[in-house]
Nucleic acid binder design. Structure first.
Lengths: 225, 225
DNA sequence: ATATGGGAATTGTTGAACACTTGACTCTGC
DNA sequence: GCAGAGTCAAGTGTTCAACAATTCCCATAT
C-alpha cells in the first residue's frame, strides 16, 4: 500500500514555499513590496492564508514587516553580509574539524552538489550555480550532525543567496569558484583537515570580498541616480 | 513631547509573548495541548490571532503543531538536550575568545544578571534563577557582537529553559551554581581567557549532566506508571 | 476481542466586514 | 510659491461566522 503524495502540508506552508523560492531565485528582488489582496487572488487563496505565509517568511528573515505598511522583500545591508560571513567562519571551520571518517554519506552528497554546480556553470545558469554553491556549504555544516544548527544555517545562507543572485555575471565569474570547492571536497575525503581549513577560510574571505564589492558598486550606482 | 507607550505591537505578537512567558515559566508544562477556541476566548482575541501566535511559537520551537491535531507545548528529548549542549560549547567557548577589553558594557550587564541570580536563589525562586542563569550565558554570546547569532541563541536557551524549570528543587541545588558564574565573570574582567574557557567548558558539562540526570529520573518515573 | 461505522469535536481555510494607520492629495491662508 | 491643516482612498490589523476536512471516541455488529 503505497500512500500517494497526499497533500499533508498546509496551504499556508505551500504559499510560503512558493514565495520563498521566488525570493531566493531573484524573481522578487529585495525591496519589492508585496500586497496581501493581489497575492491572495493571484495564488487563489484567502488573505488570511497569505498573512500566515508572510509571517513565516518574515521570521525567516526573507521578508520585512512594518506595521500598517505591509511587507517587502528584505534588503541585505553590508553589515548583514559582514555578520553572516563571521558566522560562516565560526561554523564552517569547526565543521571541518568535526568531520569524521564515517561521514561518507555527506561526502557523497557533496560530490553530487559539486556536479550540479559544474553543470550549472556550464549552462551559464547563475541562479542554479549559487544554489549548488550554498548547498555545498550547508553540507559542510552537516558534519556537526546537529539539526538545529543546520536549519539555522540554511536560513542564514538563504539571506545571503537573496543578495548573491543579483550579482551581474559581467562583474563576477562564478566558474572560477568550482575548482576551490572541488579541492575542498578532495581534502576532506583525504582527511587533510588542516589544509582544508586554511583553504576554506581563504575561500570564505574571497567570497565575502567579492560580494561586498559587487554590492558596493550597486549601491554607488543607485546613489548616483 | 514624550510620546506615551502607544501599543505598536500587533495583538498576535502580544499573544505570542504571553504564551511564551507561560511556557518558559513552566506554567504550561511540556506536552500540554492548547486549543484554539478556549485560548481565544480566554485572551479576548479572535481565533485567527491565536493561530498567528501559535505559528510564531512553533517556529521558535516552543510549540509543536501536527496537522488537524492541534498544537502542544514541545517536549524536550534527551537528544534535544545533547544537541543544544553541543551548540553551547560550539558558541560559548569562542565567545570568550572573542571578548575584548572594550566590552565593559556587556560585563556590567553580566554583573547585574549575576546579582539577580543571587537574589533569586536567596528567595528560593527557581524560575527566576533559571532565567538569570540563562541570561548570563546569552550575554556571553554577545561578545560575538552578532545579532543573528544572539537571537538564535535566545531561541536555543528558551528550549532548554522549558526543560529546566521543571526540575525539582529537591533533586537539584541551583544555589551551587552561583559561585561558578561569579568566577567566570571575574576571569573575564581580568582577561584570563584561557582559564575562563576551561572553567566554562567544565560548567557546561556539569550542567548537561545534571539536567540529563533529572530528565532520566522523570522519564523512568513516567514509564513506571 | 476485533472491526466498522457513525458522529462530535477540533483544526484548516475561506470570505466579508470594520477599525485604524498611512500617504498622498487638496485646499487654504499667508 | 508654500507650509500646514483637512480630506480621502488604499491597505493593513483584527474580528466574526461559516464550511470543509480530519481525528478521535464510542456504540454496535460480527
Amino acid at each position: 500500500m503505497e500512500l500517494a503524495e497526499i497533500s499533508r502540508v498546509s496551504v499556508a506552508d505551500q504559499v510560503a514555499s512558493i514565495l520563498r523560492q521566488r525570493i531566493l531565485d531573484g524573481e522578487l528582488p529585495p525591496g519589492t513590496a508585496l500586497q496581501e489582496v493581489p497575492m491572495a487572488t493571484s495564488l487563489g487563496v484567502s488573505r488570511n492564508t497569505v498573512r500566515e505565509a508572510t509571517r513565516i517568511l518574515s521570521l525567516e528573515g526573507l521578508l520585512k514587516r512594518s506595521a500598517h505598511r505591509g511587507v517587502a522583500v528584505a534588503r541585505l545591508s553590508l553589515e548583514d553580509v559582514a555578520e553572516i560571513y563571521r558566522l560562516r567562519h565560526l561554523l564552517e571551520i569547526p565543521a571541518v574539524r568535526a568531520a569524521k571518517m564515517d561521514d561518507a554519506d555527506v561526502l557523497a552528497e557533496m560530490r553530487r552538489a559539486l556536479e550540479g554546480y559544474e553543470e550549472a556553470v556550464e549552462g551559464v545558469d547563475w541562479v542554479r550555480a549559487v544554489r549548488f554553491d550554498l548547498h555545498f556549504h550547508t553540507l559542510l555544516i552537516r558534519f556537526h550532525r546537529n539539526r538545529r544548527l543546520e536549519s539555522f544555517y540554511e536560513k542564514l545562507l538563504g539571506e545571503l543567496r537573496m543578495g548573491m543572485v543579483l550579482v551581474d555575471l559581467r562583474h563576477d565569474n562564478p566558474a572560477g569558484l568550482v575548482p576551490v570547492h572541488r579541492r575542498i571536497h578532495q581534502l576532506l575525503t583525504n582527511g587533510e583537515a588542516e589544509e582544508c581549513r586554511t583553504l576554506l577560510a581563504q575561500h570564505l574571505r574571497d567570497s565575502e570580498t567579492r560580494l561586498t564589492a559587487v554590492m558596493d558598486q550597486r549601491m554607488a550606482r543607485a546613489a548616483a541616480k
